[in-house]
Amino acid sequence: MKNKYMKLLSVFIIIFCVGIMIVLVKAYFDGEFDSVETLQAYIKRFGLFGPVVLTVIQAAQVVVPILPGFLGCSAGAVMFGCWGGFICNYIGISIGSVAAFFLARKFGMRLVGSIFPESKFEKWSARAGNSKSFTAFLFAAMVLPLFPDDFFCYFTGLTQMKVRKFIWIIILGKPWCILAYSIAFSLIK
Rank of each mutant, 00 (worst) to 15 (best):
P65A: 09
M142F: 13
Q58E: 13
G31V: 09
C177W: 11
A60Y: 06
V36I: 10
T38C: 05
G173Y: 13
I183L: 13
T135V: 12
F121G: 05
S125P: 04
A184P: 00
N130K: 11
G72T: 06
L187H: 03
C88Y: 06
V143H: 03
T38H: 01
A141S: 14
W124S: 03
V62E: 04
I20W: 06
V63K: 01
L24N: 07
I87M: 09
W168V: 06
C88Q: 05
L9G: 14
K162H: 13
P117I: 09
M109A: 10
L67P: 05
I22W: 01
K165I: 14
I20S: 13
V56R: 02
S133R: 08
V98A: 07
V163S: 05
I57M: 10
A99E: 02
V56W: 00
L138F: 09
W83L: 14
P51T: 03
M79P: 03
A128E: 10
F70L: 05
I178F: 02
P148F: 00
R45G: 12
L103R: 08
V18R: 01
L146A: 15
V78L: 07
L179H: 05
I14S: 14
V143K: 04
A59F: 02
T38E: 04
G19R: 01
Y90D: 09
F185T: 00
G76K: 03
G85V: 00
G47C: 12
G92I: 04
F185Y: 14
Q58F: 03
Q40I: 01
G157Q: 00
A141P: 07
L71W: 08
